[in-house]
Design a protein around this nucleic acid. Sequence first.
DNA 1: TGAAATGTTGGGGCG
DNA 2: ACGCCCCAACATTTC
Length: 457
Amino acid sequence: MNIWWIRRDIRLHDTPALAGALEKGRGVLPVFVLDEHLLAKPAEKRQAFLFSGLRALEDDLHRLGSGLVVRSGDPAEVLPQLASEIEAYTVYAEEDYSPYAVQRDRELAGKVDLKLVHGLGVHPPALVTKADGSPYTVFTPFSKVWKALPFSNYTHPAPTSLPPLPSLTSEEIPATPSTDHFPTGEMEALRRLDAFLSGPVRDYADARNRMDLDGTSSLSPYLRFGMLSARTAVSAAMETARETDDTMVRKGCEVWINELIWREFYQAILYHFPFVLKTAFNAGLRNIPWRNAPAELQAWQQGLTGYPVVDAAMRQLNATGWMHNRARMITASFLVKDLLINWQEGERWFMQNLVDGDPAANNGSWQWTAGTGTDAAPYFRIFNPVLQGKKFDPLGVYVRRWVPELANVPDRYIHTPWEMSPLEQSAVNVIIGRNYPQPIVDHASARERTLKAYKGG
DNA sequence: TGAAATGTTGGGGCG
DNA sequence: ACGCCCCAACATTTC
């Protein structure tokens, strides 16, 4: 019997590690290890999503005649122990390229026969390189090579039955609150993929930036845990584009695939430059004089900055564990460039609260915003939260949804409520400084401050 | 996957 | 009718 060690492939469709384990007809034991390293991290919403996803997978495995063995501890101890209990031949796992995972797997590889197979993205990071094998640090050439690499539409079919489990002790998957906003499991993931590609993808190129519309795929949590295979997502989008004569649909598919390539770009960056988790990619920007401003950091975290779009976004994150992509850029720019607070504070807060929080994408995006990263936004590219709000939430629908105290503010003031006269304020029951904060910084002067700090740093 | 500052142009008000 | 000025609209440059 082989072991299928489940990590970021919580699914049965297109699962190379499971297919590998089944290949020689020796039977398979699906295993999940509750690694204390991962449990120790404060990330309740993501853990809840993970555990309910595991329960869904366990149900599916039962239906196929198998099941799921859960053990807690250090994988480098747990798996050799389990392997000896069933006299396993080989442990198959989908390769994870993050520094922690690489180290963990290296340790285990000395103790059992571990076979890592690619399945996290479409192309393994070591394959999308320049001719001399060196990594890309700019997105566009990376994406060109990514697109030029041969892409096989073949995806491993989900098995229709599995051999029964030997009798083994297994632990309970920890009980967690339900994840209302993201029903879990691969059925839901595949349903969402289908729903997105049969409708919203047509307007995706523009609507994806609109915070007041549901124009995104909302698949990120499923991709994060492999409840949806990235290869399945890309093949489906390619097929949708191929089968339509609607140029809008084709454009939407193209733009969406590009977003999926961004995920792999940052996976590759983390693989080739693991130090980015500790410090700025750009060595010239490691000494920016960040402000130590706990009260302002907290105002940002709680959605009480006085800038409606920023507050709406932070409250959406706190309430749902997810934030619109445009809103992520706006809130990140606000923390870094308006408050001049270290991007690593924002990185940590997002990792604690995002259901889809992924070290590679999260770090890459924060460094992009801070201008410290690969392919970075120039340091002088500073978002104006008012203009961003007007552009991407023109009627304030998003703001009103998440900042209910502003519900009655007229459209023309919804992104600048402090501009209302005292009379107008009391008419809509929004007294700035009383039941909605005064902006905690003045954008124009904050901008000047940041430009100076970056020039010095 | 910016925004602000600065430059240019052209219509219209007005003496 | 003419020249001057203002400024909106757009383009370019700068941060």
